[in-house]
Amino acid sequence: MAPSVADLKTEESAAPTKADVKPKPSGLSYPFYYPYYDVDEKFPPTQLFEHTDVGARADPAKPNLLTPNAITRDISTYLGTEITGVQISQLSKEGLDELALFAAERKVLVFRDQDFKDLGPERQIEIARHFGPIQRHPTSGNVKGYPEFHVVYRDPEHDLFKEYRGRERASGIQWHSDVSYEKQPPGTTFFFILDQPGVGGDTLFLSQVEAYKRLSPEFQKRLEGLVAVHSAVKQAEFSQKRGHPVRREPVETEHPLVRQHPVTGEKALYVNQGFTRRIVGFKTEESECLLNFLFDHISKGADFHIRATYAPGTVVVWDNRVTAHSATVDFDNAIRRHAVRLTPQAEVPIPA
C-alpha cells in the first residue's frame, strides 16, 4: 500500500503556503498559463470508468483529418509524423476520432503553426475531453481555475528539471510514460508549446511497440503475463519536500509488462524508469535485473527513437500507451521554456 501524505513529510520540508503567489515574470507570451501551486487544493481518488477508444470508430482513410490541405512528413519509420495545414481547433468530432487513430498508428504527431487565438483553454479542454476524462495532476503546477492543465515551465527562478532528476546526475534524461501509476493511465495526450528556446528543449520519444518487437520470441513470451508496480510515491515526496501540493494520496498500481492497444492490437512494452518500481512475484534481485535490462534496452534503442523539435505554436499529440519520452535539458535556464499538457485517461491496460 502506498504511504499517506502525512507519511511523506520530512525535516527538510519547506514551510507550505496557501498558494504560490510569486509575481509572474515579464516576457511571458502566455501569462495565463504560468504555473500555480495551492497546497490546500485536494482531489479525490480517481475512480474506474468505462472507456471506449474513439479511434475505434474512425475512418481509416482519415478524410476529416488529412484533408487536401494537410502536408505530412514521417520523422522515422517506426514513429513520428509532422503535420502542417491542419488546425486542431477546427477539427470535427470525426476528425478528432481520426486523430486518435493516427496517433495510435504513428505514436507521435507534431502539428505546426497552430493558432492559439482559436485554441484557448476552454477549447483545449473540450478537445482533450473527447478522448477521455482529463487526469488532474496530483503535484505539478497547474493553471489557476483550470486544474486539468499540467504546466511545464523552466526559467532562472524555476528549474524543477534539475531538482527532480538530481543535481549530481550527469544527464537529465529520464524516460517515462506520463502518470503510468494511475489505475487508468492516459492514452491520446496533448502538449501545447507556448515559449521555446531557439535551440534545444526538444523531447525524445521512443516506440514501446518496436522495443517489444526487437526482443526474441522466447523472451517476449517470458514477459507476457508479468505484472509490475508503478508508483506515484517518489513524485509526491519531491513535491512535499518543496512545500508544493500533494493533491491526491500517492498510489501504487499493478500493470502488465506487455500491454495491447485496444484499437491497433499492437503489443507494447509498458515499463518506464520514471514510475515502474518492481515486478510482482519476483525477488528483489530478479526484479532489478529484468527491469534494468528493459530500461537499458529502451534507452539505447536509437533506431526506434525520435527527437521532436519545437517552436511556439507547435502542438504535439502522442499515445502514452505505446510510447515513452524524456525532456532534454540542453539549454541554459536563462532561456524560458513554457508548455502545458492535457492528459486524457484511457482504459485499464489490456494484458498482451
Rank of each mutant, 00 (worst) to 15 (best):
Gly27Glu: 11
Leu96Tyr: 01
Thr309Trp: 00
Ile88Leu: 15
Thr253Gly: 04
His325Trp: 06
Glu266Tyr: 11
Pro351Cys: 09
Glu254Lys: 13
Pro245Ser: 01
Thr188Glu: 07
Leu66Asp: 00
Arg214Pro: 01
Pro262Cys: 04
Ser92Pro: 11
Gly166Met: 02
Ile173Cys: 05
Tyr146Pro: 00
Tyr30Lys: 09
Thr276Ala: 02
Val229Thr: 15
Gly55Gln: 04
Phe205Asn: 02
Gln124Phe: 06
Gln345Phe: 03
Ser140Glu: 13
Ser29Trp: 04
Thr309Arg: 15
Ala352Asp: 08
Ser26Tyr: 09
Phe111Cys: 05
Gly301Gln: 00
Lys267Leu: 03
Ala327Thr: 11
Gly145Glu: 12
Phe49Gln: 03
Asp113Pro: 07
His150Ala: 15
Ala100Thr: 05
Val209Ile: 13
His230Tyr: 01
Glu94Leu: 14
Val108His: 10
Gln208Cys: 06
Gly172Tyr: 11
Leu8Glu: 01
Leu206Ala: 05
Lys9Glu: 12
Thr343Asn: 13
Ala6Pro: 05
Pro217Phe: 10
Gln47His: 11
Gly55Asp: 10
Ser29Arg: 15
Ser287Asn: 04
Ala228Tyr: 02
Asp118Ser: 14
Ile335His: 14
Arg57Thr: 10
Ile71Leu: 10
Thr189Glu: 04
Pro217Tyr: 09
Pro349Glu: 04
Thr81Met: 09
Lys62Val: 06
Arg167Glu: 15
Gly85Ile: 06
Ser299Thr: 13
Glu12Arg: 13
Leu48Val: 12
Leu48Cys: 10
Thr72Asp: 05
Glu12Asp: 14
Asp97Tyr: 01
Pro35Thr: 07
Glu266Asn: 15
Pro349Ala: 11
Gly145Arg: 09
Thr309Pro: 05
Val179Trp: 01
Gly55Asn: 05
Leu101Asn: 01
Pro262Trp: 06
Cys289Pro: 04
Ile193Pro: 08
Ala352Lys: 01
Thr81Asp: 08
Leu257Met: 15
Gln235Arg: 13
Tyr78Ile: 04
Leu160Thr: 14
Gln135Arg: 09
Pro256Asp: 01
Phe116Pro: 07
Arg106Asp: 00
Leu79Cys: 00
Ala339Cys: 00
Val151Cys: 08
Val322Trp: 00
Pro35Gln: 03
Val21Gln: 11
His176Val: 10
Ala236Gln: 09
Asp74Val: 02
Phe191Cys: 10
Ala170Asp: 15
Pro185Leu: 07
Thr189Leu: 12
Phe43Arg: 03
Glu254Asp: 12
Glu12Asn: 15
Gly120Phe: 12
Ile279Tyr: 07
Val233Gln: 05
Ala56Arg: 14
Arg307Asp: 08
Trp175His: 00
Gly145Trp: 10
Ala100Tyr: 03
Pro256Phe: 02
Asp159Ala: 10
Leu223Met: 00
Val143Ala: 07
Ser76Arg: 03
Ala346Asp: 14
Thr323Cys: 03
Arg341Asn: 02
Val143His: 08
Arg165Tyr: 13
Asp332Leu: 09
Gln47Leu: 14
His305Ser: 05
Glu286Gly: 01
Phe205Asp: 02
Asn142Ser: 14
Thr67Ile: 11
Pro156Tyr: 08
Ala334Gln: 15
Lys24Asn: 05
Asn272Ser: 11
Thr323Gly: 00
Phe49Asp: 03
His230Thr: 00
Leu257Asn: 00
